[in-house]
Amino acid sequence: MAFFRDETQFRNVRLVELDNGDFACSVTRLLVFSTHRLAILQRLRTSRDNVLAAVAAKGVKEITYHRDYAARWLVTLACGTEQSRRRVEEALITVWPYVAELFTAHPVERRIAGSGVGVDPSTVRDEFDSVITQVFHAAELPQPAVAPAPHGGGHRDGDHTDAMAAFVGEMQSLAREHTMGVW
């Protein structure tokens, strides 16, 4: 399904669309995403939906690893050379505008949180901030003061960054050219 969906039919947060070319940027983005996702999954372990709870219990073990990996790399880069620190500082300016969106609840998220199945992402902000504060303290970095990136449309309603079109095009090119992998 994902291979034949239009750009506007993807409901992802814009953070995950950012370009993957710069290591400091990728590590910063991984730290942000995994810290947020771990806080969500950790709560989903007690979801009323058994499958979601089981997936979350499994995911928690894996994402804990990725969050630690990203956090250690951020500290290593920030406390490394002048260049690696500058690259991290630039990465924060690129990534941080997309942080606020992670904690904005979509009406669907609020509804399934209300029924005990999902998690309202706005409820994990404190945990996210506490983890990020620890990482930034170890990395001797100030909290980034960057305004959230403005939305063209609504939140998680198919509004994307400019990077999305090229990204989706590349990911779908094989499936569109060779449907069902037959050639």
């Binding site: 950790q42 073990k61 804990t64 969050r67 630690d68 956090a71 250690r72 506490s130």
Partner: peptide
């Protein structure tokens, strides 16, 4: 041996 993860917030491991 695998790390045991308890309920509640999971502690960050910054030191290797």
């Amino acid at each position: 041996t695998a790390r045991v993860l308890k309920d509640g917030p999971i502690a960050l491991t910054l030191t290797v």
